[in-house]
Amino acid sequence: MKTRLTNKDGEVRELTDRDVEQMKPMSGVLPANLQRTIGQRGRQQTPTKVKTSIRLSPEVIEHFKAQGDGWQRRIDQALKAYIQEHGRS
């Protein structure tokens, strides 16, 4: 007997070990173009950004994080605006 994965409100319940055991492998469910390994990124629509490490003041991080998800993107946008306003050296 199959147990529903959602309740009457449509909320997904926590999966049990039995649920996981009964799952089909990805190769049997998804078309080949949608299958990829964990950690593998799909083809990028825009140029890939450069991964870097930067030290910022706690106030800067708190300000951008307080606005929610996407805080790193907003820092990137703020730095791009600075470059446009002040020109490139």
Rank of each mutant, 00 (worst) to 15 (best):
G42F: 10
P47T: 06
K49P: 15
E11G: 04
E11S: 03
G28C: 05
I54A: 14
H63W: 01
K24L: 13
R41D: 07
D19Q: 03
T37L: 03
I38W: 08
D17N: 13
K24W: 10
K51T: 14
Q22C: 02
T48S: 10
R36I: 03
M26I: 15
Q45K: 11
K65A: 09
V60L: 09
A32T: 10
V12P: 02
K65P: 07
Q40H: 10
L15K: 10
D19I: 02
I38P: 00
Q40G: 06
T46N: 10
T37I: 01
V12R: 10
M26H: 04
V20H: 06
M26V: 15
V60N: 00
T46G: 03
N33D: 14
A32L: 12
K24N: 10
R18A: 14
Q40Y: 07
R43G: 14
V60A: 07
Q35I: 05
L56W: 01
P58R: 13
L15H: 13
I38M: 10
E59G: 13
R13F: 01
M23L: 15
K51H: 06
R41H: 04
V29D: 06
T52A: 00
F64I: 01
K51W: 11
R43K: 13
Q44M: 08
M26C: 05
M23E: 06
S53L: 04
I61A: 11
S57C: 05
M26P: 03
F64D: 04
I61Y: 02
V50W: 08
L34N: 11
I54G: 00
G39Y: 13
E11F: 10
I38D: 06
L15T: 02
K65D: 12
T37E: 10
G28Q: 06
T52M: 08
S27Y: 08
S27E: 06
N33C: 02
E11I: 03
G39W: 08
L56H: 01
Q45T: 11
M23I: 09
Q22F: 10
T37R: 04
R13Q: 12
K49S: 08
H63P: 00
I54D: 00
E21K: 12
E21I: 12
M26F: 12
T46D: 05
Q45S: 12
R36L: 12
R55T: 14
L15R: 11
P25D: 10
V12T: 14
